[in-house]
Computed example of a mutant assay.
Amino acid sequence: MGKPSDLSASKAADSVSLHSNVGESSRNNIHHDVLDTPEISIDDLPPNYSEVESLLPPAIRAPPLNSTEALMMEDGTVFNDSNYGAQYWIAKSLEYPDALESHIRKLAAIPPRPYIKLVGTHTETRRNDKDKNETTTVVDFDVSVELTPYLYYDAQYHKSWNQLRTVENFEKTKRGTIFRKRAPGTHQNIEVGGNPKPTLTEWCHRYAASHAGLKVFALHRTMIGFNEERVKSQLRTLVNNTNYRGHLKVELVMKNSLVECYNEARTNHWRLTTWIQTVFMVTLLFIFSWPYLWLRTKRWEVAISEWPFSRLTEAGAKEYVSISEDQWYNLWARAISKAVMEKRQKVLDQADLRRSQEPEPSLDTGNYAVNGALGLFRAGVSAMNEVNRQLGWGGDC
């Protein structure tokens, strides 16, 4: 897929705020860069989305994060990618420009789901039954923390800074084409003639006017203004300080970031049906079908929903929609470190955060023998963790 360049420093002329609130300023919710980054209280955390949706009155609820229910149309079919949360829509009504534009704007109000993911692995070499060396990869921990709540300055009512924009003329992307290209009369960052870029309305009309047999209009959701490398460096140092000697991978995983709207065609239904995809993979027919689909499908990858983690003010200062990267690290470092040492494999939530800040609860089962056994077990786990810190753990063997 085409990946639009990050133009967070510039504000497009046709950018539309999707969460404007008349008479209300977000300035009181802004956190500026400071030298001494304070820690954030757990009580100030945005609530989990599952809790928020159940508490809000139906009249003021924002579209749910799985947009299928809120945006389902009578003639529409939606296909979901369970791994990365991508959505693929097919509907005859979306071939009309007004309906397509309305649908894209609603989808743009739903955030991407960014996760910071830490995975530690090591390899083990053992003799198998045939007296040969056999190497296997063992996952020591797989810990993730979702960043989506920090894209809102009021998560309960889904108030954010996100904007929907169209690609700039100098961006290389698919503009109803097979290959990525810039707008006519544009060379790199230099525009000849100064023609304004098309608005979302214009792009939707161009899509509807196309006579291509297979065509798709894509929306990309993205998080901007996040210092990914700084956070990765901090987390690598955090894990290395536990004396971990395995293979560490820290990455930013973006889910729920792609939406594609296809025209009504039998071929499009087939290409998105899971069992048909499986048959083509097993029989190797994809070797022939993929080039056919790639050459026949005209793509419009021109709409981008930007969700700022931070942005620059007119004075050049950096302001955050909720908390800074350092504040996020101060908030989650202890919980992540504890989860790594416990070799957990899960997405951490507020319960994990609270447990990391609280002392170990006393155990009283009412049975002296059971209490003693549980206390001995806890002491043994603590001793093993301390030995791991001193001597190292997770190395290849």
Score class of each variant (00 low, 15 high):
residue 45 L to T: 04
residue 60 I to N: 05
residue 69 E to C: 02
residue 52 V to Y: 01
residue 22 V to H: 00
residue 38 P to M: 04
residue 36 D to L: 08
residue 19 H to A: 15
residue 58 P to C: 08
residue 23 G to C: 00
residue 59 A to Q: 05
residue 58 P to W: 11
residue 66 N to I: 12
residue 24 E to T: 01
residue 50 S to T: 12
residue 61 R to C: 05
residue 36 D to E: 14
residue 49 Y to W: 13
residue 63 P to R: 06
residue 45 L to G: 00
residue 71 L to G: 03
residue 22 V to I: 11
residue 24 E to A: 14
residue 50 S to K: 06
residue 50 S to Y: 04
residue 42 I to W: 06
residue 62 A to V: 07
residue 54 S to Q: 01
residue 58 P to Y: 00
residue 28 N to H: 06
residue 60 I to V: 03
residue 23 G to S: 01
residue 50 S to V: 02
residue 41 S to V: 14
residue 52 V to R: 10
residue 27 R to F: 00
residue 58 P to K: 08
residue 42 I to Y: 07
residue 42 I to T: 12
residue 69 E to G: 13
residue 55 L to K: 10
residue 61 R to M: 05
residue 64 P to S: 14
residue 61 R to S: 10
residue 44 D to H: 04
residue 32 H to M: 04
residue 64 P to A: 12
residue 55 L to Q: 10
residue 21 N to Y: 15
residue 71 L to A: 01
residue 67 S to W: 05
residue 19 H to N: 15
residue 37 T to E: 11
residue 27 R to C: 00
residue 48 N to F: 02
residue 56 L to W: 01
residue 20 S to N: 00
residue 40 I to G: 00
residue 52 V to C: 05
residue 32 H to R: 13
residue 52 V to S: 08
residue 73 M to V: 09
residue 52 V to M: 06
residue 28 N to I: 10
residue 24 E to Q: 03
residue 55 L to F: 11
residue 45 L to P: 11
residue 74 E to C: 02
residue 25 S to M: 14
residue 37 T to Q: 10
residue 72 M to W: 00
residue 41 S to W: 06
residue 35 L to R: 03
residue 29 N to D: 05
residue 44 D to I: 13
residue 34 V to H: 11
residue 49 Y to A: 10
residue 55 L to N: 13
residue 34 V to Q: 09
residue 23 G to W: 02
residue 73 M to P: 01
residue 40 I to A: 03
residue 35 L to F: 09
residue 50 S to R: 02
residue 73 M to I: 07
residue 43 D to F: 05
residue 32 H to G: 12
residue 51 E to F: 06
residue 48 N to Q: 11
residue 26 S to I: 07
residue 22 V to M: 03
residue 62 A to T: 09
residue 40 I to E: 10
residue 36 D to A: 12
residue 73 M to D: 04
residue 69 E to P: 09
residue 50 S to W: 04
